[in-house]
């Protein structure tokens, strides 16, 4: 049951997959499925047993009215061009079950999603800052994040706030 198609059929049969909440297509993977958060750990176990490794976790701030994140996990194999995308839709402030007990690398990936977006993971052994300095209050990768509080490390204390000089694509680049 190593082939991606068989594996996702298995996930479907066990009722672990969900209806897509958005219509965004995913490419670059052999198969992709939306999985309900409560079935995520079971699905990851099945993938691990089938010989897949945890490749990446991406959190996307979808700016949903209810404040939802999309988590995109990819799993790949060593012996065949098979990549499975597992997507999870999670409302803000609802913890997602942690995969740290299944895949070792999930621990770091989830810490990253927590510090950059504020996604909570239940059952994570150590949900602390990974890349940012300990104690950072803001969640920089949220779409609502505009600037960090002024500090001695940036020009905000010495120079007047500059207008958004986001480069015009036609004049710079």
């Amino acid at each position: 049951m190593a082939a991606p198609a068989e594996l996702v059929r298995l996930l479907d049969e066990r009722g672990w997959t969900a209806e897509p909440p958005t219509a965004h297509p995913m490419s670059g993977v052999s198969e992709s499925r939306w999985v309900l958060p409560e079935h995520l750990v079971a699905a990851a176990r099945a993938l691990k047993e089938a010989g897949y490794f945890y490749e990446s976790l991406t959190c996307v701030d979808r700016l949903d009215p209810q404040g939802a994140f999309e988590l995109v996990l990819t799993f790949a194999r060593w012996d065949a061009p098979a990549r499975i995308g597992v997507r999870v839709w999670t409302p803000k402030d609802t913890p997602v079950p942690s995969l740290a007990g299944v895949f070792g690398i999930a621990e770091w990936n989830e810490r990253e999603a927590w510090e950059l977006f504020g996604v909570e993971f239940s059952g994570h052994p150590k949900l602390r800052w990974l890349l940012l300095p300990d104690g950072t209050e803001f969640r920089p990768l949220l779409k609502s994040f505009t600037a960090p509080p002024p500090s001695i490390y940036d020009d905000s204390l010495t120079a007047p706030a500059s207008p958004d000089d986001r480069t015009d694509p036609d004049t710079h680049g």
Binding site: H24, P25, M26, S27, G28, V29, E55, S56, T58, V60, V72, T74, A76, R83, G85
Partner: peptide
């Protein structure tokens, strides 16, 4: 176009992947 794309290459240190939304 709208979409989520994963693209992997072999870099000098291993598999490098870009997930582009």
């Amino acid at each position: 176009p709208v979409g989520t794309q994963y693209y992997a290459v072999e870099a000098a240190r291993g598999a490098y992947g870009i997930l582009l939304v």
